[in-house]
């Protein structure tokens, strides 16, 4: 399909506002350096509160965490420096390998499903005439209940002896015998993904809906007059215009999903046979349950570079998108 940055499309879509902004950009070039210095000062003042908070409550503990990852500390005993041995140990740890694999599958599947379902719901809600308010509010419910509690509800719904899900599927004729939702290795990770999608989809839907409402209907009309069908209009008009919002939502969702903890902790505890362990739950298990703080820190940190790469890529993509739209 068409790339969102297709030059023809983006020129066609550039709103008059953007063009005007570009004109102002030219004026800006002639500004004096004194203004720039003042900007620099203002920026510093504006950034100060955020940076102070982050330095105190993230940077410092993070540095301690990195150090901890290179010690052989166990709880209550300051460890010796052992370099990257914790990481080497994890690399060869079969449970850790499984964990890494689970995390990637979990993140990829859940994000894909959340995006496509969320987009679908946003499009449909955008088209709806009545009930909008009610639907929007109710769609948000899964996102609002504290995760721990809604996950407990799912645990109850999946309980092999009392499963409502089994009851429904059985009476609809989809299954003959009960499904052990959290028992099989594939079933368990699927169930965990489903719960994550259930929880996270509203975030996508509502934010994308907000994005959709900013799109000028005239553009659609113009495209329709040009003979584009619904599918084409979505891919050539809506999708590229929604791209910035989409990327931000996906970005945050990927991070949250990748580092997910509560859901698995409550639903399966990583079982059966480690088939649902994620980085966070396994790191927690090592660090807290076995008291190997150094190794646990290393396991927590192991997800960092991966996330970092994913995020760098997405940030680059977002910025590139902005450049393509002809802004600054």
């Amino acid at each position: 399909m068409n790339r969102p940055t297709d030059p023809v499309t983006s020129t066609a879509l550039a709103s008059p506002a953007v063009t005007r902004a570009a004109l102002f950009g030219l004026t800006r070039l002639r500004r004096s350096t004194r203004t720039e210095r003042r900007e620099w000062l203002l920026a510093f003042v504006l950034l100060l509160p955020a940076l102070t908070m982050l330095a105190l409550f993230v940077a410092y503990p993070f540095a301690r965490g990195i150090r901890l990852g290179m010690l052989d500390s166990v709880v209550g005993r300051e460890g010796q420096f052992i370099g990257i041995q914790n990481y080497i140990k994890l690399w060869y740890d079969s449970i850790f390998q499984r964990t890494a694999q689970n995390t990637f599958i979990y993140t990829a599947c859940a994000t894909f499903l959340k995006l496509s379902l969320g987009m679908l719901v946003a499009l449909m809600l955008n088209n709806l005439i009545g009930f909008k308010r009610l639907l929007r509010a109710s769609m948000l419910l899964p996102w609002i209940v504290p995760t721990v509690l809604s996950t407990l509800a799912w645990k109850w719904m999946f309980d092999p002896t009392f499963s409502i899900v089994n009851w429904i599927l059985y009476h609809l004729g989809f299954i003959q015998v009960r499904v052990d939702w959290l028992g099989g290795p594939v079933a368990a990770i699927t169930s965990v993904i489903l719960v994550n999608v259930w929880r996270g989809m509203p975030f996508f839907a509502i934010t994308l809906l907000a994005g959709l409402q900013t799109i000028n209907p005239d553009i659609h009309e113009a495209a329709a007059i040009d003979g584009a069908n619904a599918w084409q209009r979505f891919w050539r008009v809506t999708w590229p215009l929604l791209m910035p919002v989409t990327m931000v939502v996906v970005l945050f969702s990927v991070i949250q999903t990748f580092a997910d903890f509560q859901l698995v902790y409550i639903l399966t505890g990583g079982g059966p046979a480690n088939s649902t362990h994620l980085f966070a739950t396994y790191a927690y298990q090592i660090g807290i349950a076995t008291g190997k703080l150094g190794e646990g820190a290393a396991a927590s940190l192991a997800m960092f570079p991966v996330l970092f790469l994913v995020v760098l890529f997405q940030l680059w993509y977002i910025r590139r998108g902005e450049g393509g739209k002809g802004g600054a």
Partner: peptide, 15 residues
């Protein structure tokens, strides 16, 4: 009972 793989400490009490 072939659903024990997903059981926790509470499952058997209730079942």
């Amino acid at each position: 009972d072939e659903s024990g793989l997903s059981w926790d400490d509470a499952s058997n009490n209730r079942a």
